[in-house]
């Protein structure tokens, strides 16, 4: 249970869509529980949005203030609709070359995935008022159980299940802010520290 894993008293509740003000209140290290609609998008979605630049009204759901979740889920089609079986985060750095433009063009306020992102995205977070959430890598059923419903999907035929854009209605979906809108990145800090240790270990 989320309550037993993360200290709920210290967590911040986030209700979507996010505003610039919400985002500015978040800092590296904050644990958040997310409520509302999140949209998935991974390699192909990013390549498509970056190169084809569809207009906002061509996309069947609103990305303004949304969280874009780097996730390629396992989903089964059943009579009652789509059922999410497993859905943890995928490695975010692969979309580093696209993300900055997508954040500014579509007004996304949160990017969620795993492993963190680079300098270009960090700058875009600061310039546009956006934040990077790191959720629990590999915890695919734990996280799927925080998704109440699969609400909608776009580009399913063309991109296939893992690469389509899915809309999930989530409740108390846990994540940790690792890159904030104030220019701070936990990933940059860890990399610096590990570089120092690495150099020490290979010194002669």
């Amino acid at each position: 249970m989320v309550e037993e894993t993360f200290n709920v008293e210290k967590t911040k509740i986030i209700n979507l869509p996010l505003t610039r003000e919400d985002v500015l209140n978040l800092n590296v290290g904050d644990v958040v529980l997310i409520n509302g609609l999140i949209v998935t998008g991974r390699d192909r979605v990013h390549k498509f949005l970056f190169n084809e630049r569809p207009k906002k009204e061509q996309i069947p759901f609103n990305l303004g203030g949304a969280i874009l979740y780097h996730c390629g889920p396992i989903i089964k089609k059943e009579d009652a609709g789509y059922r999410l079986i497993a859905g943890g985060p995928t490695t975010s750095i692969r979309v580093e070359m696209y993300e900055h433009q997508i954040i500014s063009e579509y007004g996304i306020r949160g990017v969620m995935g795993k492993g963190g992102m680079g300098k270009q995205t960090l700058n875009a977070l600061k310039e546009n008022g956006c934040v990077y959430f790191h959720t629990v890598s590999g915890a695919a059923v734990y996280l799927a159980d925080r998704v109440k419903r699969v609400v909608d999907v776009w580009k399913l035929e063309e991109f296939g299940i893992p690469e389509a854009m899915w809309v999930f209605d989530v409740e108390e979906f846990p994540a940790i802010v690792t890159m904030d809108a104030h220019g701070r990145s936990l990933h940059e800090e860890i990399e610096k520290k590990s570089y120092y240790e690495f150099k020490r270990l290979i010194e002669r």
Partner: peptide
Amino acid sequence: AVLSAILENIRIARETARPICQ
């Protein structure tokens, strides 16, 4: 905290026979 979530995930996956990772 993330390691507890991982251990919890391993337990749920086994009990519900769902894939540990998507």
